[in-house]
Computed example of a mutant assay.
Amino acid sequence: MSVHDELTTIQRCLDDLSRALSRLEQQTGREGLEVRRVRTDAGHLRESVALLRAAATAPDAPKRPDLVTISDAPYDLSLWTDSDDEGLGARDRRAP
């Protein structure tokens, strides 16, 4: 299945959940804390699915970052002539 199909399936399930909650409220005759919590959670899931749908349909969405090749060749030692060894102190002094 495609991403669009999967998101549509999730949306349908959330709609079914909302209808089931409405029926449950009618059968019990009250809206308890538990039902309100499930409604709130379902609302959060709807928002998350909307964000996923927007991200999936974004035209500029990168599929994965470009890989950077790191050479195995040693670095040019002249790059490090003006710096001290980090964590070891200066060359002419003893480390603590």
Score class of each variant (00 low, 15 high):
residue 24 L to I: 15
residue 24 L to W: 15
residue 25 E to D: 07
residue 25 E to K: 02
residue 25 E to G: 00
residue 25 E to R: 00
residue 26 Q to H: 15
residue 26 Q to E: 15
residue 26 Q to V: 12
residue 26 Q to F: 02
residue 26 Q to N: 12
residue 27 Q to R: 15
residue 27 Q to K: 15
residue 27 Q to I: 10
residue 28 T to G: 01
residue 28 T to S: 10
residue 29 G to A: 11
residue 29 G to C: 13
residue 29 G to T: 15
residue 29 G to S: 14
residue 30 R to D: 12
residue 30 R to K: 15
residue 30 R to H: 10
residue 30 R to F: 07
residue 30 R to W: 10
residue 31 E to S: 08
residue 31 E to Q: 09
residue 31 E to T: 08
residue 31 E to D: 12
residue 31 E to V: 10
residue 32 G to K: 09
residue 32 G to V: 01
residue 32 G to E: 14
residue 33 L to Y: 00
residue 33 L to S: 13
residue 34 E to W: 03
residue 34 E to R: 09
residue 34 E to Y: 12
residue 34 E to T: 13
residue 35 V to G: 08
residue 35 V to E: 06
residue 35 V to A: 07
residue 35 V to Q: 14
residue 36 R to V: 04
residue 36 R to K: 14
residue 36 R to C: 00
residue 36 R to D: 01
residue 36 R to P: 05
residue 37 R to Y: 04
residue 37 R to P: 01
residue 37 R to L: 04
residue 37 R to G: 04
residue 37 R to D: 04
residue 38 V to T: 10
residue 38 V to H: 00
residue 38 V to I: 14
residue 38 V to E: 06
residue 39 R to N: 12
residue 39 R to M: 08
residue 39 R to L: 09
residue 39 R to S: 05
residue 40 T to P: 00
residue 40 T to Y: 02
residue 41 D to F: 10
residue 42 A to G: 04
residue 42 A to M: 02
residue 42 A to I: 05
residue 42 A to S: 06
residue 43 G to N: 05
residue 43 G to S: 10
residue 44 H to Q: 14
residue 44 H to R: 11
residue 44 H to V: 12
residue 44 H to T: 14
residue 44 H to W: 10
residue 45 L to F: 08
residue 45 L to Q: 08
residue 45 L to C: 08
residue 45 L to T: 03
residue 46 R to P: 06
residue 46 R to S: 02
residue 46 R to Q: 08
residue 46 R to W: 08
residue 47 E to S: 08
residue 47 E to A: 08
residue 48 S to E: 09
residue 48 S to I: 14
residue 48 S to C: 01
residue 48 S to R: 13
residue 49 V to E: 04
residue 49 V to T: 15
residue 49 V to N: 01
residue 49 V to C: 06
residue 50 A to G: 07
residue 50 A to H: 08
residue 50 A to M: 13
residue 51 L to P: 00
residue 51 L to V: 12
residue 51 L to F: 05
residue 51 L to S: 09
residue 51 L to D: 13
residue 52 L to I: 10
residue 52 L to W: 10
residue 52 L to P: 00
residue 52 L to K: 04
residue 52 L to Q: 01
residue 52 L to S: 06
residue 53 R to Y: 01
residue 53 R to Q: 14
residue 53 R to P: 02
residue 53 R to A: 15
residue 53 R to I: 05
residue 53 R to S: 11
residue 54 A to K: 13
residue 54 A to I: 13
residue 55 A to G: 02
residue 55 A to C: 08
residue 55 A to P: 01
residue 55 A to E: 13
residue 55 A to R: 14
residue 56 A to F: 03
residue 56 A to M: 06
residue 56 A to K: 10
residue 56 A to C: 05
residue 57 T to C: 00
residue 58 A to Y: 13
residue 58 A to N: 06
residue 58 A to S: 07
residue 58 A to H: 13
residue 58 A to I: 11
residue 59 P to H: 06
residue 60 D to S: 07
residue 60 D to T: 05
residue 60 D to N: 09
residue 60 D to L: 05
residue 60 D to P: 00
residue 61 A to D: 01
residue 61 A to G: 03
residue 62 P to E: 06
residue 62 P to K: 07
residue 62 P to G: 01
residue 62 P to F: 05
residue 62 P to Y: 09
